[in-house]
């Protein structure tokens, strides 16, 4: 027994429609992967900052609210354990994200005259994701801290058109 071929009013067979649909999904996947390739991964972004040097988790405390009301302004505080003396201090701190269109957020340069390695700022997060802070110390070592953030969305937003 053969299955009857279904036809829609335009004469396309069901198979034809499915093939078109599959082709469409294929293109979409391609487009998404091209877009994903456009930004480095979180690991690649960190490696770009450290020049490939190893990064150890610790010494850095990254504070972000676990649940964010609006991704347009997320308060971030970074504290690095350091005596901040001429001999031993934090040279740079970089912030990276996992899922924004661009991995970089900000890079800060500081030194012994800051007295304390503590920085606060406000950042944008397009969606729920991981944020990482990497500190470069004066001895050339790199230390990091990660945080996962859930981003919720505002109600009743504007119609831009």
């Amino acid at each position: 027994m053969t299955e009857p071929t279904t036809r829609d009013p335009l004469g396309n067979t069901a198979l034809g429609r499915r093939a078109v649909l599959a082709g469409g999904i294929g293109l979409l996947v391609l487009a998404l992967s091209v877009r994903a390739l456009a930004r480095p991964s979180l690991q690649q972004a960190v490696a770009g900052f450290t020049g490939g040097a190893p990064v150890t988790a610790g010494r850095v405390k990254l504070t972000l609210p676990p649940l964010v009301e609006n991704g347009n302004a997320v308060g971030v505080t970074i504290d690095v354990e350091s005596p901040m003396t001429a001999q031993s201090h934090v040279r740079r701190i970089a912030l990276f994200n996992e899922k924004n269109p661009q991995a970089d957020i900000a890079v800060f340069r500081l030194g012994p005259h800051n007295g304390r390695a503590r920085i606060a700022t406000r950042i944008r997060l397009a969606t729920s994701q991981t944020v990482i802070a990497v500190a470069e110390l004066s001895d050339g070592t790199y230390w990091s801290s990660e945080a996962n953030v859930i981003v919720t969305l505002a109600a009743c937003i504007e119609d831009l058109t």
Partner: peptide
């Protein structure tokens, strides 16, 4: 005494605090 490089992921009306 302090320098920052910002990317688009820094919020509108940028705010920064340090010591």
């Amino acid at each position: 005494v302090f320098f920052a490089e910002f990317f688009p992921a820094v919020s509108a009306n940028p705010f920064v605090s340090f010591s």
